[in-house]
Lab assay of single mutants.
Amino acid sequence: NQASVVANQLIPINTALTLVMMRSEVVTPVGIPAEDIPRLVGMQVNRAVPLGTTLMPDMVKGYA
């Protein structure tokens, strides 16, 4: 099963992502693939992302 990117903490709206904010986990539904974590660093979320939430492509500005 493919691992997805999951929020390791509450990520406030418009926050630029850092490695410490994300972890990989096998979840359903599948979100952004864990191998894209390096690409996500520095990108901003367009909404608040609660701890444990799977990051979906539409949550990250410029990802989709």
Rank of each mutant, 00 (worst) to 15 (best):
P12E: 13
S24Q: 11
S24I: 10
T54N: 03
L55Q: 00
L51S: 13
P38I: 11
A7W: 01
T53G: 09
A16D: 06
D36N: 04
V27Q: 12
E25W: 04
E35N: 14
S4G: 15
L51N: 10
T15G: 10
I13W: 08
N1F: 05
T53Q: 13
P12Y: 15
S4H: 03
I32H: 01
N46V: 04
G52F: 14
A48R: 07
Q44H: 08
L17T: 01
A48N: 14
V27L: 12
P33R: 15
N1A: 15
V30H: 15
Y63G: 09
V26F: 02
P33F: 13
M21G: 04
I32P: 00
A3W: 12
L55V: 09
V27K: 13
E25M: 09
Q2G: 08
M43C: 02
L17D: 00
P57K: 12
P29W: 07
Q44C: 02
P29G: 14
N1V: 08
N14K: 04
G52I: 01
A16L: 14
K61T: 14
A64D: 15
L55Y: 01
I13H: 15
N46T: 12
I11A: 02
Y63K: 01
V45H: 00
R23I: 11
V41Y: 06
P12W: 11
V5C: 02
S4M: 04
A64Q: 10
A16C: 03
L51I: 08
L40C: 02
A3M: 06
L10F: 08
P38V: 11
V27P: 03
T53H: 11
N8F: 11
A64W: 03
M22R: 00
Q2Y: 13
I13E: 07
T15K: 05
T53F: 03
G62F: 07
A7V: 09
A34T: 06
L19V: 07
N1H: 12
G62N: 08
T15L: 07
E35K: 15
A48P: 14
I32A: 03
G52E: 14
L40A: 03
K61M: 09
S24C: 02
T18D: 05
R47N: 05
I32V: 12
V30Q: 11
P57G: 14
P29T: 13
P12T: 10
V30P: 10
K61H: 13
N46L: 13
M56V: 06
L19I: 09
N8Y: 10
